[in-house]
């Protein structure tokens, strides 16, 4: 019975809480810009409204265009089953689940890219091509982060890599963890198409990455993509938060509260980054990812030095 409740509360957190993060980011940006901004629950209103609309499909498209949002949504949801957060153990944990975690996102992304190309529009092709290369680069950094965590925790299962007894580790391998955390945060921005990589709210299609890919999606399809993106932010953010909170009280309520507060804190930080930074030029983005790569590499080197 307990695992059942745990899975249910995990699903509830993913499905219901994730759009709130987008609302928090929006509110933070509005605060910095001196505006009142949309209400905190605006992403929920958007999703609800979109679900109640009919879709418009281009005559060029095939079934791939319709299937992609569902596959994207399902992959992000399933990926959330693999990480522990907020005092909830991961329902599925095994040696090597970190790979499945990464490759599930890869599967979703592959179909979103195909769907973008399916429309036959050059804008969407442009977005697809950019998303493909930047996410490929960020995947390398992610694997380097995994390697550092694997060296530190002597394990290749996400639940042991980020979840357990980090208080002891922080005292021993703090420097390495800080570097890995910083590098992971940069990758988080890349993967979730936030400023300084990509601006979800810009008005010019030519400079967009993720948003331009989903130009032709409408109605419930767009709702699935929006909600899927929110879950992706939640899942990848909770990886970050669980990694950095060296604290577990084993009291469900305290753990959950601390976790949710930390997630909101993360959203505020992302909002601040978005407010104080300008979007990078497209050809500067590889340098940004290289920066993350170097941080991860140093994290790994320190980890190897500490452990051996």
């Amino acid at each position: 019975m307990i695992p059942f409740i745990s899975v249910l509360s995990r699903l509830a957190a993913c499905l219901l809480f994730s759009p709130f993060l987008l609302g928090v980011i929006g509110k933070t940006k509005a605060f910095f810009a001196g505006r009142k901004g949309p209400p905190l629950l605006q992403p929920y209103y958007d999703i609800l409204k979109l679900i109640q609309k009919g879709s418009v499909y281009s005559v060029t498209t095939t079934w791939i265009f319709r299937a992609a949002p569902l596959i994207f949504f399902a992959t992000t949801l399933i990926a959330s089953f693999l990480i522990p957060f907020g005092g909830l153990k991961a329902p599925v944990q095994f040696w090597g689940d970190a790979l499945l975690f990464t490759y599930l996102f890869g599967l979703g992304r592959f179909f979103i890219i195909l769907a973008a190309m399916d429309t036959g529009s050059s804008f969407e092709g442009m977005g697809a091509s950019r998303e493909a290369i930047f996410s490929c680069l960020s995947e390398i950094v992610l694997f380097l982060n995994f390697a550092a965590l694997a060296v530190l925790s002597k394990s290749f299962s996400l639940s042991q890599m980020i979840g357990e007894s980090w208080w002891a580790s922080w005292t021993v391998s703090g420097p390495s963890l800080i570097l890995v955390g910083a590098s992971y945060f940069m990758i988080l921005l890349v993967e979730n198409s936030r400023i300084p990589i990509d601006d979800p709210a810009t008005h010019l299609e030519l400079t967009m990455i993720h948003e331009v890919m989903v130009l032709d999606h409408s109605g419930p399809d767009l709702a699935f993509i929006l909600h899927g993106a929110a879950i992706k932010l939640f899942v990848q953010g909770s990886f970050f938060v669980t990694l950095l909170i060296p604290f577990q009280s084993h009291n469900r309520i305290i753990d959950a509260t601390v976790f949710l507060a930390a997630m909101i804190g993360l959203a505020v930080i992302i909002g601040i980054v978005e407010s104080v930074m300008a979007r990078l030029r497209l050809n500067r983005i590889p340098s940004f990812i290289t920066g993350a790569f170097v941080l991860a590499l140093f994290g790994l080197i320190i980890a190897i030095m500490r452990v051996l």
């Binding site: 109640q52 609309k53 009919g54 879709s55 418009v56 499909y57 281009s58 005559v59 060029t60 498209t61 429309t119 036959g120 529009s121 032709d216 109605g219 419930p220």
Partner: peptide, 8 residues
């Protein structure tokens, strides 16, 4: 909710 088919 009905769907429509138009050009890209």
């Amino acid at each position: 909710y009905p769907e429509r088919r138009v050009g890209t």
